Simulated scan of single mutants.
Amino acid sequence: MLPGPTNVPERVMRAMFTPMINHRSDDFVELYEDAVESTKKVFQSNGEAVLLSASGTGAVEASVINLIKNGDKVIIPVNGEFSGRLAQMLEWAGANVIKLETKPGENATFDQVKAAFDNNKDVKAFYCVWNETSTGTMIKYLDKIKDLTARNDSYYVVDGVSIVGGEEFPMDKWGVDVAMTGAQKAFAAPPGISPIVVNPRAKKYMEQNPPKTMYFNLSRYFKYYEEAKHTPFTPALPLLYAYREAMNVILEEGLDKRIRRHRICSDALYSGLSAIGLTPFAKEDARSTVVVALNYLEGLEDKTFRNTLANKFRVLVAGGFGNLKGKVFRVGCMGEVHRYHVMRTISAIGSTLDMMGYKTNSVEALKIAEDKLKSL
């Protein structure tokens, strides 16, 4: 129950057990083209998809070095570890970064974003970490940002590493120019493949202004795909097979049904764990549906709790980041999460707390969660 890597279906794991192929062969063209086209369907975009053999951070960095130049003005909400890292990447690229900083567990409001645009007419891009996994927060006004970026044709970039595939994301409809994710999160695939999707406007800019880098030069990927459906460098072939199968799983389930499942399971986790006596870390209007961050009970030691949960009940959850280390723990609600995962997690957490001397009402918590899960 980590916020990545998540549980991977057996059929996706089995897809990796395939004889090695030549990445300049017809077999590779079939594999890569299938994976690219499926990715575009999941992102709901007619743009260009590049499947990088890299972590999610690699795809995020690729968006920065291909789009941002020295002196460009960029607006970005910052409220946790990953949005802070992205702001740093932008600064390293030479950008004039306007940070909309809020406390962990809160999000900058849409009005604050609007005010930043009102006060900066020459903005080159708006960047955001849609789902801040370090704090369990999620921005809930992505559909409104295009009204701001349209003022001066600034670019709209969404770091969706931990949420695309687990929440609604009609990329083209929302006017997003560049977006990316990581396979090991809501896609429920092994880590190592990170797709980045670029719309025609951003693609044209990147081709006309290529960065001084080799591996993350997206214009090279565009060129190789257009000419032969190849990649410029050797990709992680076994992972691509698994990734393609994960895309098949998503599309077979259907995006609407998959998103509904994530939301129902999330509601059940929040409700059930709250009934045990745990409190969510993020403010209610900012809470993520795919990462449930919870405050520790007074006196509850982080490592002891998580080790007991793992060793006695075989349930893995994540600890806190940075200043939140030892203060919160995080439960992933993404990918393959279903009724079984929710009920087992609530039961295991309740039992662990009982073993550590905390009085909980796990029976009532499970009843509440089960009631939320009835519609699955």
Rank of each mutant, 00 (worst) to 15 (best):
S55K: 08
G326A: 11
L316V: 14
L2V: 13
G332F: 00
S271C: 07
E10F: 11
H341K: 05
V290D: 00
E167T: 09
K144V: 06
T102H: 09
T102W: 02
D118T: 05
Y215L: 14
E106P: 00
I65Q: 14
S219L: 14
F82D: 14
A15D: 04
F17Y: 15
R14M: 07
E91M: 08
D111P: 01
L86Q: 01
D143E: 15
P19D: 14
V317Y: 04
F281N: 00
K204I: 06
L218N: 06
S53Q: 12
S162M: 02
L366A: 06
S194Q: 03
Q88G: 05
F117P: 02
G160F: 01
P19A: 13
G47V: 03
T6Y: 10
G175L: 03
K41P: 11
K212R: 13
G326T: 12
V113N: 02
D147N: 14
D172F: 03
M247V: 03
Y32G: 04
R287M: 08
G165V: 10
K223W: 13
A228Y: 12
L2M: 12
A228P: 01
E48I: 14
G319C: 09
T279M: 09
Q112Y: 01
W174K: 04
L376R: 01
A282K: 02
S162P: 01
L142T: 07
N79M: 04
S154I: 14
D153L: 10
D153F: 11
E37M: 12
T289D: 02
V337Y: 02
G357K: 15
F329H: 09
A348Y: 12
K41M: 13
S25N: 11
Y243W: 03
Y296D: 00
E10K: 15
K140E: 03
V178I: 14
C333R: 00
G335M: 11
M247T: 02
A348K: 11
A150R: 13
F187L: 15
M20P: 03
D285V: 02
I193C: 06
S45V: 05
E61D: 13
E298R: 15
P3S: 12
G335K: 13
E253M: 15
L269A: 09
W174D: 05
K303H: 08
K359Q: 11
A348P: 13
N96W: 09
T109Y: 06
Q44S: 12
S162I: 00
C265M: 13
A54S: 11
L269M: 15
N66G: 09
R220S: 12
E301I: 11
L218A: 06
Y243V: 04
N79V: 02
D267G: 05
R151N: 04
A293W: 01
I21M: 13
A228D: 13
S55C: 10
